[in-house]
Structure formats: structure tokens, C-alpha cells
């Protein structure tokens, strides 16, 4: 287990450094890192500090958030097909962002879009808690999530439909594909408090999620407070996923594939899968964000497109490989 933790740590670290080293300006790894450490006002330290560092940091933060939330939701729902978007908060955050783009709020100040997305996520989480009720079971949560996702998707379509010109519509569509390009440290500082709070909340759920392996009745009889666990799960997921969507748009498949990929390596124990998926998610998003810069550097390939293109076949392969083992 320690070997796996070490391996994942090294992977994240290596990809983080690689992420700092890659960019259109052709600043080398050594030169860039030296400039980042030494500081200064030249173009190299500026590019490193203002462009590459936030991009790499957001890669780690968003990947960890999606991996962790995916593992927690799969553990709670006892279903390997659960993913962070399931509770509808990412859809609600996207709607907030789309409204900001449509109304021009996004253009008035730099944080207009992410703040609107966070407001969307906040409204989404209130709605899901109202819909799913304080004592509802896991099925109610899934149904409420589906309802919220459908509503957010419908309203997003409506905004696109009523969009005044094709430029606004294409801006919205491109934003929804998800990207880490051209983000600043302001985005990092905006997302960090929500994500940190969400990480801490989700990390406390390990023991309850382990007990849920035996079903809700057995877990409750073993002292797990299910209502509280579910509330922390929803709030924690909403915080990390809402913040991730707010600063980077929709990045799919990370929260679905990463826990699935790592489950056999942690003996399928939900509590261990939490930290493993957080690190694995960080590695996956960093790697994907490196790939979009290396594969088609001149075409601005979107991160969310790549994670889906790589994630979907990988997921199919995993299902094919493990279908004999699932009940």
C-alpha cells in the first residue's frame, strides 16, 4: 500500500514538473524551474508564475477533486458507474457559467464566469438537498441528481438556443469542453478554499464508506450515521466539483475511470480508494493537459474532449476485462 502511495506521488510530481516545462514559448524545464524558484521580473519568471504554474496547480487540484469525489460517490452508492457529475452540481455550475457568458457578465471582470459558476453550483446543491430530503436513501439521491442534471442541461440548451449571435454560442460550446489554458493564479486562489474544504470533508468519510460495503442497514447498525454521511458527501462533492467546473469547465471521465482503475490496487477498500483516486486523478488530468499541448499544439485541443476520448475507450476496456468479476 505504501508502495502504491509512493508510486502515485512520484507520478504526480513528475507530471507536475513536466507540465511546468511544456508550453508554446519553448522555455526549457531547467530554465523554467530555476526562474520559478529565483523569481524576478523578466519574461521567463513571468510566464512561469502567471501561466504555467497556475495551469499545473489547477491540473493537480482539479484532478484530485474529480478522483476523490468519484471514489467517494462510488463508495456511497456502491456502484462503480457513479461519477462526480451524477449529483448534477457540475451541470448546475456549467449553467451558471453559460449564463455569465451569455449575459456578458464574464466579459465585465475576470472572475465573473467562475463566480457565476460557483453560484450555479451553490444553487444546485441546495436544490439537490431539497429534492433528496434529509432522510432519503441513495436511490433518491441518484434520482434527484438526474433531475437536476436534466434541468441544468435543458436550461443550458435554452441559453444556447436564444443566444444572440453564433460567436456567443461557440464561446459557450468551447467553454463547456473544459480547459486549463490561460488560467491565472486568481483562478487557483478562487478554487482552493472550496476544494480544500471539500477534500477535508470527503476524506473523513472513509470508515463509513467501508462499512457501507455491507449495505445501508448493516452500516447504520455499525454506528455509521447515514444522514450525516450523505450530507457531507453531497456538500463535499459539490464544493470540489463546483469549484473545478467553475475554473476549468466540464472535464469528464476522470472521476469515473480513475477509481475504477485503482480499485484492484487497493484491495477494493473504499477508504483507501479515496486517497489513491485523488492522486490518480491528479496524475490523469496533468497527463491529459500535457497531451493537449503536445499532440496538437496549434489547434487548442480542449482538455475535456481529450479526457473523454481517452477515458471512454479505457472505460469500455475495463468493463470488458472485469465483467466476469462483477456480480
Amino acid at each position: 500500500m505504501i508502495r502504491l502511495a509512493l508510486l502515485l506521488c512520484l507520478m504526480v510530481l513528475a507530471l507536475f514538473i513536466a507540465s511546468l516545462a511544456v508550453g508554446p514559448t519553448g522555455i526549457g524545464a531547467g530554465e523554467g524551474l530555476a526562474a520559478l524558484v529565483a523569481g524576478g521580473d523578466g519574461p521567463v519568471p513571468l510566464i512561469m508564475r502567471e501561466i504555467r504554474l497556475p495551469r499545473a496547480l489547477l491540473g493537480v487540484m482539479i484532478g484530485a477533486s474529480l478522483g476523490l469525489a468519484g471514489a467517494a460517490l462510488q463508495g456511497y452508492l456502491r456502484n462503480p458507474l457513479a461519477e462526480p457529475g451524477l449529483i448534477g452540481v457540475s451541470g448546475a455550475a456549467a449553467l451558471g457559467a453559460v449564463l455569465a457568458l451569455q449575459t456578458g457578465l464574464a466579459a465585465t471582470f475576470a472572475l465573473g464566469l467562475p463566480l457565476a459558476a460557483l453560484a450555479g453550483a451553490g444553487a444546485g446543491v441546495i436544490l439537490i438537498l431539497l429534492l433528496a430530503g434529509p432522510r432519503g436513501g441513495s436511490i433518491t439521491l441518484i434520482l434527484a441528481g438526474i433531475a437536476l442534471s436534466a434541468l441544468a442541461a435543458a436550461l443550458t440548451s435554452l441559453v444556447l438556443n436564444l443566444s444572440p449571435n453564433p460567436y456567443a454560442a461557440s464561446e459557450i460550446v468551447f467553454w463547456m469542453m473544459g480547459s486549463l489554458a490561460d488560467r491565472s493564479m486568481t483562478h487557483v486562489w478562487l478554487a482552493l478554499p472550496f476544494m480544500a474544504a471539500g477534500w477535508v470533508a470527503l476524506a473523513t468519510l472513509g470508515r463509513g464508506l467501508d462499512a457501507l460495503t455491507l449495505g445501508e442497514d448493516a452500516a447504520e447498525a455499525m454506528g455509521v450515521r447515514l444522514t450525516r454521511l450523505r450530507l457531507i458527501l453531497v456538500l463535499g462533492t459539490a464544493a470540489v466539483v463546483g469549484a473545478a467546473t467553475a475554473v476549468a469547465g466540464a472535464i469528464g471521465f476522470v472521476g469515473l475511470v480513475v477509481p475504477h482503475l485503482l480499485r484492484p490496487l487497493v484491495g477494493a477498500q473504499p477508504s483507501r480508494l479515496l486517497w489513491a483516486s485523488a492522486m490518480g486523478g491528479a496524475a490523469m488530468v496533468l497527463a491529459a493537459d500535457l497531451a493537449v499541448r503536445l499532440v496538437l499544439p496549434e489547434r487548442d485541443l480542449k482538455l475535456g474532449v481529450l479526457t473523454a476520448i481517452v477515458g471512454a475507450p479505457l472505460f469500455l476496456h475495463l468493463i470488458y476485462k472485469t465483467r466476469a468479476e462483477m456480480p
Binding site: 456502491r78 470508515r207 449495505g215 448493516a218 447498525a221 455499525m222 454506528g223 484491495g267 477494493a268
Partner: peptide, 25 residues
Amino acid sequence: AWLPQARQIAWPVTVERLVMLGRTP
């Protein structure tokens, strides 16, 4: 301790780890 009738085991954990879940409280 409560042993429900529905025999639910959600994840492919080992027998040892599953029995250890009884120590949760």
C-alpha cells in the same frame, strides 16, 4: 450487532477485510 437478511457485499474485498468491518464501532 445486526446481521441483515440481505447478504450485501458491494466490493471485491477479501474475507479477512470483510470480517474486520465488524470492528468498525
